[in-house]
Amino acid sequence: MLDPQDRIRFEQLVLPHLNSAANLARWMLRNRDDSDDVVQEATLRAYRFFGQFHGGDARAWLLQIVRNTCYTWLGKNRPSELMTEFDEEVHQRPAANPEILATQSDERQQLMRALESLSPRFREVLVLRELEGCSYKEIGEITGIPIGTVMSTLSRARERLRQVLIGANGAAAKGVS
């Protein structure tokens, strides 16, 4: 059982990274309520295993637990997401409604949709690298991807994202004309 001293240490070392945890979970689950639940569960799990944390990169340590909790959750609640990339949404969205079209032309929305359409494996490396600024070593620690293949995973993820963005732009342009 952890004592109040541990709790203080945990609050100082681990809790400052709650934003990173929330961001990763939200991108992985793409929904606020589910990611709130998972962040809470993962943080408690981290707390229970805090005895096993022997210093080092507290953010990577927490994110690793958050990431695993996300996968467990997805496996239980949305197993299909772990198997498929659902980019249909981006490619086949009907462009009839001008409001939707206008929103699609909004770069931020488009990018967000494109990122969300990637498979969880691609999404996680992109979120960790571009939004969290994790090093390859940290990405390896968090995701369990061997450090030697972090670069190639990232380059495939970026390539896929680029293709989705081109696809979305193509579809939007067709809708306008």
């Binding site: 929330a22 991108w27 962040v39 809470q40 967000m112």
Partner: peptide, 18 residues
Amino acid sequence: IGNAAPYYKVPAGLRERI
């Protein structure tokens, strides 16, 4: 990606719950 993708911070209520 870095500039346009939203960064989701932890909601204050969740921080308190944790």
